[in-house]
Amino acid sequence: MSGWLRPRIEAFFVEVGRFFVLLWRVFAWTPRPPYDFRQLGTQMVRIGVDSVPVVLLTALFTGGVMALQTFATLKRFNAEGYVGSLVAISMVRELAPVLSALILAGRCGSAMGAELGTMRVTEQIDALEVLATDPVHYLMVPRAWAATLMLPALVILANGIGIAGGYVVSVGLFGANPVTYMANTFQFMDWNDVSSGLVKSAVFGLLIAIVGCQKGFYTTGGAEGVGRSTTRAVVLASITILVSDFFLTKLLY
């Protein structure tokens, strides 16, 4: 057993250790000059602005499906009047943050893994160090903060579009009353529903960036290694999102 299990357990703790070391170094380097606002801006566009279409499309259809499913179910209890609240609260608390995070993990976690991985295998990261530039400071700090800031912004958009998707399906397809549906949507929602979703998504953003950068940063083995890092960045970021979602939800409720 030890022959198979032990190296895997060791590798697991190495990964966890690297994660926290990088997280700490990102925080430690953040307040130090030079401040690279240009890099931050570039990353914010790449992570945030460029993800808008796919995040909105996902939110629209998720809101629509939520309405489809719950309308049919709640009708059995003559409770179809609550579809609006159900769609809105599910979207804002859970679906928009988690789905947007998973999309961002696929779009940007992988890109960070590939970009930093390529820089590693072509010695560009070594070159940074030789040129008296800390790679964590130069590469990871802007990516980490861009993701932390932009994911909540994306989630705000996703919230709105998801609710709109639910509205379109309920009103357009099931003939719900538009006025009561809208009133119902915001009837039970409070500020904590929105804020907990935004806090969660900020944490997810940070996790995606650190995991993506970590996989890229520790890449070995040429083009094949970059491929491996990219895949692992997405898989690991997705798992981290889902697991931390449980604990964050528990904590924030």
Partner: peptide, 19 residues
């Protein structure tokens, strides 16, 4: 060591230019 490295210049095998 980051500052100390300024007294070095290193040219890498394939250039290692930032692409």
């Amino acid at each position: 060591i980051t500052i100390f490295r300024r007294r070095f210049g290193m040219a890498f095998q394939e250039g290692a230019l930032f692409d």
